[in-house]
């Protein structure tokens, strides 16, 4: 059981991610943009952050950069939810400090496999 922060402006994607992870026994907090995610991350420590790239208010890349400036989030796995065509975004995300990525579209099985991979 891990504490996971799921960040996506799309309620359906976020819902799918949260539902799947909760089904696997994880504790999931949802945030709909980067700023809200930072607020949530400041309020509690998460073992894993899953973040969409394109979001209003604050995008995923900026969010990762900011998160990595917090002492609590050095080395905490952060996965970007991105699309295969977004090669640049993957690299931008990495440069910002993301751990890796999960390529959309993904199904619940792939999500769980990837999450288990980083949570070890």
């Amino acid at each position: 059981m891990a504490k996971i922060l799921a960040v996506d402006d799309s309620a359906s994607m976020r819902g799918m991610v949260a539902f799947t992870l909760r089904g696997a026994g994880h504790e999931v907090t949802e945030a709909e943009d980067g700023q809200k995610a930072l607020d949530a991350a400041g309020a509690g420590k998460f073992d894993l952050v899953l973040a969409d790239v394109n979001m209003p208010v604050m995008d995923g890349i900026t969010m990762v950069k900011q998160l990595r400036t917090k002492a609590d989030y050095q080395g905490v796995p952060i996965l970007m939810l991105t699309t295969e065509s977004d090669t640049n975004k993957k690299m931008e995300g990495k440069a910002a400090g993301a751990t890796g990525w999960l390529v959309k579209p993904f199904d619940p099985d792939k999500l769980l496999a990837t999450v288990n991979r980083v949570l070890g």
């Binding site: 799947t20 909760r22 089904g23 696997a24 619940p108 769980l112 496999a113 288990n116 991979r117 070890g120």
Partner: peptide
């Protein structure tokens, strides 16, 4: 399979 631990089973209820 790229997991160190056996994959967490999804509880039946969730499925």
């Amino acid at each position: 399979p790229v997991a160190l631990l056996p994959p967490h089973p999804v509880p039946a209820a969730a499925v």
